[in-house]
Nucleic acid binder design. Structure first.
Lengths: 370, 370
DNA sequence: GTGAAAGCGCTAACAG
DNA sequence: CTGTTAGCGCTTTCAC
C-alpha cells in the first residue's frame, strides 16, 4: 500500500458518471444537414466552405459538444502535431524555465508536447520506444547526457531531432547551445584579471559536450595567462557529488582562490559548502563563478557571478529549427550557438580595470559596461 | 528575427535526409508470411498467437524497424494511454519534482504525459480545447489557480479529472492534497510555543483552496491561544509580489516577530528581504516558516522550517486515483488528503518544551521526536 | 491459432 | 462550393 493511501480519505466515493461516447463528425453532419466532409472542412482553416455552411456546422458542433479527433486526423495527415521532449531530470533550475517557454512556443504554433522525464536512473530506451509509437513530428533532446544512438533511430525513422543545450557529432541532428566555450574563456579572463592565482573547475557531466566546452574554454583562457595546472573535481550535475567535490577542493593543502563551477545549480551548492562547512568568505577568501544565470543566482544570499544561458532565444531557435524541418519534411543538421554574457555579481572579486577577451571584446568594466 | 538567430551558425546546413514512410503492420505481415492480424496479435500482450508465429512476426518487425502506430490503436480502442497534465507555471520548486515523479509513475503503467504549461498570463481555454482533441484518457490539474469550468467540460466529455494540490467543490472531480489545514495549525502551535506574539501570514494565491486551508489552519491554531489579530499580505505565488508583501509587513510600526508564508518558494524570498533589506536576523528578530519543504529549505543558508508537502505519496495517490477511474471507465469523486509533518530547522525560534496539537499529537520535542 | 472483413473518425482526392 | 468515395494503420469479431 502506497503511503498516499494512508491519511484522511472519503471512502464513500461520491457521485459517479460513466464515460459518454464522444461526438463524431458524422453526428454533427446529420444535425447540420450537411455531409460529413463539410464538417471536416468547417474545421480545417483555409478549406473552401460557404460561410453559411460553416456557420451551420459550427452551430451543430457547439450544440453537440463536438471536438475533432486529433488521432484520426493524425492517421491520415501523417502529422501528429506532437513534439516529444526528453528531459531525464528537472533538478537543474533552468529546465522548468525551458519547459515553460518551450510549451508556450510550441503551443503558439499549434503543437503539443509529450514529455518524457523522471528516468534519471532507469534506462531511456523503453521510454524512447514509446515516444516513437506516438508518431511525434519531432524530438527535442534536452538532457546533457543521453545515449546517442537514440538520435540514430529517430533520424532513421525520419523524425527530426533537435538537441537542446548539447551538441553531438551525429551528422543528422540539429542542436542549439549557448556559447559554452566563450563563456568558459570569459570567466577565465575575468578571474585572472581579478588577481586570482589558484584555479579550480568543478565539472557537470564530464562526458557531455556542454561540460567539455565550458571546461575547454576555461582552460584555454587560463593558459593564455600561463595557468595550466588547475584543481579539478566532478559534480556530475548532482548535489551530493558536488558537495563532495567541493569539500575535496577546499580541504586541499593549497585550496583554490577561484572556482568555476560548470552550472549554477552546482555552484550554489559549492557556495554553501564554502561558507558553512569551511567558514570561507565569498569572495574575500574564494571567488565562485557559475554558468546558466538561474534566477536564484541573483538572490542577495548568493549574488552569484554567472555566465548567462539565454533560455528564451535558445528556445526560440530550437522551435524554429524544429518547425523548419517539419515543414520541409527533410532532416537537416544545423547548429546554432546563442551568445550569452557574464552577469557580474558579488561572488567573485572584481578586477581593477576593464577586462577584454582575446579578440578585444569587452567582458566587464568598472562602473558598468558603459 | 528572434535573438536566437544571431550568434554563430553554420548556414551551410549539412547532410539532409527525407522522411521515410513508416513501416506498417501490413508490410511486416507480408515479410513474415502471415496475415496482418497476426502481426497485431504478436504485439498485443495476452493475445492468442502460436509462439512460432509470434517469433516470425517479431523477427520481421525488427528487420523492418516496425513500431505499432499508437494513433491507429487509439482510434479503435478508444484509449490513448495519454494523460493530460496542466501546470500553468513551474516556478514553484515543487512542480519539477511533481512532474518527474508523475512521469515516472505514468510511464510505469504504460501511460504518456501530454504537458500543458507556460500560459501564466494567457488564458487556459484554447489550451484546453487542444488537450481534448487528443482524447486524453484523463486530466491532471496541478495549478492552484485554474478556471473551474475547465473540469466541468472534462467530466461532461467523460474524461476523469484529478486535481493535484488543490481541492474543488466540483462534484465530479477527484483531488489529492496535503493536509493544508493541519499544517497551518501545527505551524501556529509551534510558533506560539516558541514565544512569538506578533504574527503575520503571507498568502499565495488568495483564491486557491490550498491557500485558504493553510491560512484557515494557521488562524485557527493562533486563535486557540487568543491571537486573532494578525498581519496579512498577499504574495500571489509570485516573487515580486512576495517581496513587496514582505516589505510592507517588516516596515510596519509593529512588525511581526513570526511570519508564516504560504509556500517555501515565497518564504525564501521573504527571508531574503528580511535579512538583506531590513537587516533582520532569522530567527532572533523574526521567525519565518514556510510550507512545502522544498529542497532548498534544507540548505544551510536558509535552514527554513517548513511543513512538508509529501510529493511522492501525493503523486502515487493521484496516479492511483486516475488509473482507477480509467479502468472502471466511470468518474468518481474521491478526495485524498495526504498527511505531512513539520520539518523543524533554524529559521524559527525553538519552543522550550514539547509542542502538541490540540488533539495531543506531538508536533515537536526538544532533542528530536524520540 | 489464424485469416478475412469490418470498421475506428477523419482527410483528401474526385466529380459534380 | 459540396457530396461521394477511398483509405490512414490498426483492433476485433467471426468463421474456419
Amino acid at each position: 500500500m502506497p503511503a498516499g493511501a494512508s491519511g484522511l480519505s472519503r471512502p464513500e466515493g461520491g457521485p459517479a458518471a460513466t464515460a459518454r461516447h464522444a461526438v463524431t463528425a458524422e453526428e454533427v453532419a446529420r444535425r447540420a444537414g450537411v455531409s460529413q466532409s463539410a464538417v471536416s472542412r468547417a474545421f480545417t482553416p483555409g478549406a473552401s466552405v460557404a460561410p453559411r455552411t460553416r456557420e451551420k456546422v459550427l452551430a451543430a458542433a457547439r450544440e453537440l459538444g463536438y471536438r475533432p479527433n486529433a488521432m484520426a486526423r493524425t492517421l491520415i495527415t501523417n502529422r501528429s502535431r506532437i513534439i516529444g521532449v526528453v528531459m531525464a531530470y528537472l533538478d537543474n533550475m533552468i529546465y522548468p524555465d525551458v519547459l515553460e517557454k518551450l510549451a508556450a512556443g510550441l503551443q503558439r504554433r499549434g503543437y503539443q508536447m509529450l514529455l518524457f522525464t523522471g528516468f534519471k536512473d532507469r534506462h531511456s530506451d523503453p521510454v524512447f520506444e514509446q515516444v516513437m509509437q506516438y508518431r511525434v513530428d519531432g524530438l527535442l533532446l534536452a538532457s546533457t547526457t543521453l545515449s546517442s544512438d537514440l538520435s540514430d533511430e529517430c533520424t532513421a525513422a525520419g523524425v527530426p531531432v533537435v538537441m537542446f543545450n548539447r551538441m553531438t557529432e551525429h551528422p543528422l541532428c540539429s542542436s542549439v547551445t549557448s556559447d559554452n566555450r566563450n563563456g568558459g574563456r570569459q570567466i577565465a579572463e575575468f578571474l585572472v584579471a581579478g588577481g586570482h592565482r589558484r584555479f579550480a573547475y568543478i565539472a557537470g557531466a564530464a562526458i557531455s559536450s556542454t561540460n567539455r566546452d565550458r571546461e575547454a574554454g576555461f582552460r584555454e583562457g587560463l593558459s593564455r595567462h600561463g595557468f595550466s595546472q588547475i584543481g579539478y573535481a566532478e559534480g556530475n550535475l548532482e548535489l551530493g557529488d558536488t558537495r563532495t567535490a567541493a569539500r575535496g577542493l577546499f580541504a586541499a593543502d593549497e585550496p583554490p582562490d577561484a572556482v568555476f563551477v560548470g552550472s549554477d545549480h552546482m555552484a550554489l551548492a559549492v557556495m554553501e559548502v564554502a561558507r558553512h562547512e569551511f567558514g570561507l568568505r565569498v569572495p574575500e577568501d574564494v571567488s565562485i563563478v557559475g554558468y546558466d544565470d538561474v534566477g536564484a543566482a541573483d538572490w542577495p544570499s548568493f549574488s552569484l557571478t554567472s555566465f548567462s544561458l539565454p533560455v528564451e532565444p535558445m528556445v526560440d531557435a530550437a522551435v524554429e529549427l524544429m518547425m523548419e524541418q517539419i515543414e520541409s519534411s527533410s532532416i537537416l543538421s544545423h547548429h546554432r550557438v546563442v551568445p550569452g554574457c557574464l552577469a557580474v555579481r558579488g561572488s567573485a572579486r572584481l578586477p581593477g580595470g576593464p577586462v577584454r577577451d582575446r579578440d578585444g571584446t569587452l567582458i566587464w568594466a568598472p562602473g558598468g559596461m558603459e
